[in-house]
Write a protein that binds this DNA or RNA. Structure first.
Length: 584
RNA sequence: GCCCCCGUAGCUCAGUUGGAUAGAGCAACGGACUUCUAAUCCGCAGGUCGCAGGUUCGACUCCUGCCGGGGGCGCCA
């Protein structure tokens, strides 16, 4: 996945590449030098330990041989010490680090390697339901999906966003009838202002309580599926008013999704009969209990019997499995996707596995098309149970986001009262929304996470405001000195202070941090890096005066480090979908 | 019953694919502001990595079996 190019920002990657031929010569085959960060030096090389076993030599002997083959490394390393059972502790030369950083900062991707072979990704995320409130599950999918889209685009992949909204199915009978009862104008208003939950619940209540209404709903579903013009018109009202509301939330959230990305379930309607035909032709379709199903291998139900994927229900209708299969066909054959990412909650794991299994068996997914479930856990409240509002309903997303901005606004007002209103409000949006997004992105997505306002908006620890604060402080330095950021970008820094060195080393690891996060579709790995960068910077900031440095050369060198940090922080937050205010 | 995910400091979380003495933040304690933004920093503590085996030079990491929590398992999506 990574580009094999001459310039690599990360000194660890570069060291690994430099040592690779030496290891190969000693091992007689290509082996990983296993270069890792170290507590004892800038890096440690562990490859000799594993190699010793296969060669039947002592690790230290292997180290000696490798270093002999490596030859003169003094352009890169000022020290290489063998330690412990056979580690090599490596210290990079200051000059090498400074020049690497200087090169990285001239690079448009700030040292991040672009992809070697560009691939087309379809990212399926967000997926709210029409006429139904967006909840924290959609929040996670939207935030994680959007971050992955940005990260993939940053390194040069082609990315297609797909918002698979729930705009079709049996509930639409009752929703449309409720719309009719309310009158189109009033219903549109209710949905438009975001009272989706009230709308849905009232429809549901009538459906459960009133047999006449229930019958009307059933008739309406038939009319909808039959393409009745009036019904379609009403349905479109529901969809357009809902998407208007979704767009409002997306605007608050500052995500990339637009109407162009909508790929609702209804879009695949015409493909559904074809899914049946194709499966039938392949003799994969089986009749079971009145339904037409496929039995993918290796799945059983609670009685130990084969577990089916239901393609066509007993009543002749289709369900979501059929739509998902149609979706696979569409993505592979029409869009030409190489990789399809499903940013969907962890409980869907089995369903998606079955979809993949059937798709592969049917030949729709070849060996070079990947389907990846980017799973995530639930959002929990302070009580460690699924996050709910006081009334026990799902927490309304829009109000949650407004509360985030409001809380951020209050925090800024308290800490920085002299800030102008307009500026404060802009910063509050970036900080509040950034806090919500970052708290979601910064821990391993597959685990459940605890939603905690005080923690996510704290300026201490691994939070968005802490990272944003580091960025804002840098901007402040340049403002105060009235120096243009671009003016220091040709500097090659001097790295006398340990804090300058540590910061530089960290800056150079943006490349590997981003790729590491991308390889696992785990944005939290990039978050961890940015947090470490912010920590490293604040340490530097405390110990190394910039504007009051002893010489102009030193001042410019430190300004360069500041600018580099701000650029990488900004780029890193940006690919996570988070903005960095210049003042806060 | 079968399958999937999770279990690391009092709390919230990392842990770079098997490397040295398991790291942060919060909370607790002790320090540092006529400041380039103290929204910060420095220090000090805090652990049977759920339990028990196994694999090997080496295991939080891989394998097996338990325990605990969550989730999924035929016509909702």
């Amino acid at each position: 996945m990574r580009q094999n190019r001459d310039f690599m920002a990360d000194p660890l990657s570069l060291l690994a590449r430099r040592l690779s031929p030496a290891f190969a010569a000693v091992a007689g085959a290509e082996v990983d030098p296993v270069v890792r960060p170290s507590e004892h030096a800038d890096a440690q090389v562990n490859g000799a330990l594993a190699l010793a076993k296969t060669l039947g030599k002592s690790p230290r002997d292997v180290v000696a041989l490798v270093l002999e083959h490596a030859g003169d490394m003094s352009d890169v390393c000022s020290d290489m010490q063998v330690a412990g059972p056979g580690f090599v502790n490596v210290v990079f030369t200051d000059r090498f680090l400074a020049e690497q950083l200087s090169l990285a900062m001239r690079d448009s991707l700030l040292g991040v390697a672009p992809v070697d072979s560009k691939r087309k990704f379809v990212v399926d995320y967000s997926a709210p339901n029409v006429a139904k409130e967006m909840h924290v599950g959609h929040l996670r999918s939207t935030i994680i999906g959007d971050a992955l889209v940005r990260m993939l685009s940053f390194v040069g992949h082609e990315v297609v966003r797909e918002n698979h909204i729930g705009d079709w199915g049996t509930p639409f009978g009752m929703l449309i009838e409720h719309l009719v009862d309310l009158g189109e104008a009033d219903a549109a208003h209710e949905l438009g202002v975001g009272d989706l939950d009230g709308f849905y619940k009232e429809a549901r209540r009538k459906f459960d309580a009133d047999d006449t209404f229930k019958e009307r709903a059933r008739t309406r579903v038939v009319a909808l599926q039959g393409g009745d013009e009036d019904t379609l018109h009403l349905w479109k009202t529901l969809v357009s008013e809902s998407t208007k509301y979704f767009n409002h939330v997306y605007g608050l959230l500052d995500v990339l999704l637009t109407d162009d990305d909508l790929a609702g379930e209804s879009k695949y309607n015409t493909l559904l009969p074809e899914v049946v035909q194709r499966l039938s032709r392949l003799k994969m379709l089986v009749e079971s209990d009145g339904a037409e199903v496929v039995f993918p291998e290796g799945y059983t139900n609670r009685d130990g019997d084969p577990l089916p994927l239901i393609i066509r229900k007993g009543d002749g209708g289709y369900n979501y499995a059929t739509t998902d299969l149609a979706c696979v066909i569409d993505r592979v054959e029409k869009i030409g996707a190489d990789v399809s990412l499903y940013v969907v909650g962890a409980p869907q794991a089995q369903h998606l596995q079955m979809i993949e299994s059937v798709s592969r068996a049917a030949g729709w997914l070849s060996d070079n098309s990947a389907m990846v479930h980017v799973a995530f856990g639930s959002v929990l409240g302070a009580d460690r149970k699924m996050l709910k509002s006081r009334s026990g309903d799902a927490v309304k997303l829009a109000s949650l986001l407004e509360e985030a901005v409001d809380r951020a606004n209050r925090a800024i007002t308290e800490k920085n009262p002299e800030m102008a209103d307009a500026q404060r409000e802009e910063a509050a949006r970036m900080i509040g929304i950034g806090a919500v997004k970052y708290s979601d992105l910064s821990s391993d997505r597959v685990k459940d996470y605890v939603f905690d306002w005080d923690r996510m908006l704290s300026f201490e620890g691994n939070t968005a405001p802490y990272l944003q604060y580091a960025h804002a402080r840098i901007c402040s330095i340049f403002r105060r000195a009235d120096i243009r950021r671009e003016a220091v970008r040709t500097v090659v820094p001097t790295l006398d202070a340990p804090q300058e060195r540590a910061l530089t080393l960290r800056l150079l690891q943006f490349d590997s941090a981003l790729w590491d996060a991308l390889d696992k579709y785990s944005p939290h790995r990039l978050c961890t890096y940015l947090y470490e960068l912010a920590s490293e910077f604040t340490t530097f900031y405390e110990h190394c005066p910039v504007l009051r440095a002893d010489s102009e050369e030193l001042r410019d060198s430190r300004l360069f480090l500041c600018d580099s940090t701000a650029r990488i922080m900004n780029a890193g937050l940006s690919v996570l979908g988070i903005r960095a205010p210049e003042m806060m």
